[in-house]
Design a protein around this nucleic acid. Sequence first.
DNA 1: TCCCTCTGAGAAAACCTTTTCCCAAATCGC
DNA 2: GCGATTTGGGAAAAGGTTTTCTCAGAGGGA
Lengths: 353, 353
Amino acid sequence: MASDAQPTPVSAKQPVTLREVAALAGVSVATASKALNGQGRMTAETRTRIRETAQRLGFRPNSLAQSLLRRRSFTVGLLTNDTYGRFSLPLMAGVSDALVDAGVSVFLCNVEDDPRLAQLHVDAMLDKRVDGIIATGKRIDRHLPVDLANLGIPAIYAFTQPDPGAIAFVSDDAGGARLAVEHFCRLGRRRIAHVSGPASFAVVHARAEAYRAVLAENGLPVMEPLLGPWSEAWGHEAVAKLFDGEGFDGTREKPDAVFCGNDQIARGVIDALRERGIGVPDEVGVIGFDNWQIVAEATRPPLTSVDMNLAALGREAGLALLSLVGGEPALPGIRKLPCRLVVRQSCGRPPDG
Amino acid sequence: MASDAQPTPVSAKQPVTLREVAALAGVSVATASKALNGQGRMTAETRTRIRETAQRLGFRPNSLAQSLLRRRSFTVGLLTNDTYGRFSLPLMAGVSDALVDAGVSVFLCNVEDDPRLAQLHVDAMLDKRVDGIIATGKRIDRHLPVDLANLGIPAIYAFTQPDPGAIAFVSDDAGGARLAVEHFCRLGRRRIAHVSGPASFAVVHARAEAYRAVLAENGLPVMEPLLGPWSEAWGHEAVAKLFDGEGFDGTREKPDAVFCGNDQIARGVIDALRERGIGVPDEVGVIGFDNWQIVAEATRPPLTSVDMNLAALGREAGLALLSLVGGEPALPGIRKLPCRLVVRQSCGRPPDG
DNA sequence: TCCCTCTGAGAAAACCTTTTCCCAAATCGC
DNA sequence: GCGATTTGGGAAAAGGTTTTCTCAGAGGGA
């Protein structure tokens, strides 16, 4: 059939087994296995002959058989309830990146918020003997609808509420807010407002706390954060409240900076300011949160925003799971990963730029 | 240890094997297997005793062992190069949905546009004996950087360029464009412009063709489509060209409708029209493409848009792969799935609404 | 020459389940 | 009561790999 000096292996319809390699090389499967894995003792000649035979046949070991024997499948499950969201994408990419380098494949499990579906997926993962599970979500303060605590395999939580005693990676929202507000301070802004999302989100409070703290540290007036939906429309509305209302801190002064809870709100704020003829960033600086690139770059002017480094967060989670699977001990707890400020043009330039 | 009338099985650290079930039930593994699978012949009493034992121990068969034996892993690989995009998400969710119902798990393979990475993933899938592969992308007219043709397992393409002789599911872009333009016609719009993406995209031409065809069928003037980047900024620019330029079809008449190649362009168009004081939808109707919900709902007024039904497309792809894996024959070729028009407020109400 | 040690390689068990074949006991027909 | 069939259940192979144990032969020392 195939010429016997074939350089590239034919991709066989039926995968070639170790037994076939061994037969063709004239040795036992045991010897063939050892030759290919660098184990055992044999003549160099035997080893290379077996290796060449394997190469020629395009032999690749059956992972299923290996996994069965080793009790390690080099596979993990990735649970998410953020199917349509933009948070899970970079997160998943980060996880996947970290794992593919270690030869570990990732099962994608979209569980929505359905406990039945979640349990279905978890059971399937367990049956397929995944080495571990990573749980990710769209909200830091919400549980996935399934318990991952006593599965007998390690679990890591990323950007979702962990079970007690587990290991979780989340963004440092307070730190991110600090980054934004301190940047405004450095730029000389004095009346910094905060427009954020619904009070039911934990991150809203974390960011608001940090906002207050930084202003206090800098001796600047604090305006009670304006809370509403995570939408452009709310950004518009908030501008009306900020600029038609009582003004800042009881005085009649208007804000010269707005720190927004996400980029959609920021987009609404910027559009509303423009419609009022208020210059951004000259009269009012705006900073968003999430660094949703496609939105941040489409605002006029392009939006400065806090990036949660979700891909990096995913990487960390992946690496942590790997080390857990490898048997290394790790302390439970929540690890907050720093955000970074992506400066574009909506906040103004540094004075000594 | 555990009380022997335990209703919910303890999730054992070490998964319990069939051998243990058999031992506890006082039968051989063969009998135990047959009892649980409804095979073989035995007393009803024996069968229920074995089943209850399995239940009590929380026995779940090891998929690895089953797969090894059956030569079927109930697992498929999902290749994508659209990590950060919004197209792959609904697509992947659709695929996942279709497969999870059949008890099939999905390996997520993010290959970017890196042939090395793609080959790495494909090899890993093959080693893990996936039953099939689904290839998805962010562009209908681009290949994934790897050849899926002679792998010995079935492959289905969804929203990406297939290998010749393969089965692919794509959106019917021409049909989608038809939907939009015909809707404008029904609403009585007479001077319908088309602002779309770069000429390097196949869909741009498909949609432009359909645009021309519908206008011709209705005896309406055709304006050469305006091509540019897929961005809001281009939408702004295009409005300038449309409303400052020569006007429609050589006359000085301005468009009363704009069909846009995606929702971002449409958003730019609507914003630009508002800034010029041109009423949407009263003076000019606007329809977008992609139905990117978060954008479409944030425009003022909310954007009517063509939806490619990507989740349904993913479902179809998943089901097709399943039937291929099941051994059912299928004709190669490209299946175009219909789009649907999601009517919001940017296009105006039907005359006899 | 004899005994011991090393070397190269194979046999077999293990991982866990499914399935085919087989066997002993029980039942049936007459 | 005897041969034929059915019934209930077990033994073993298969799936592909890894690893431990074993063993035959070769070489070395005395």
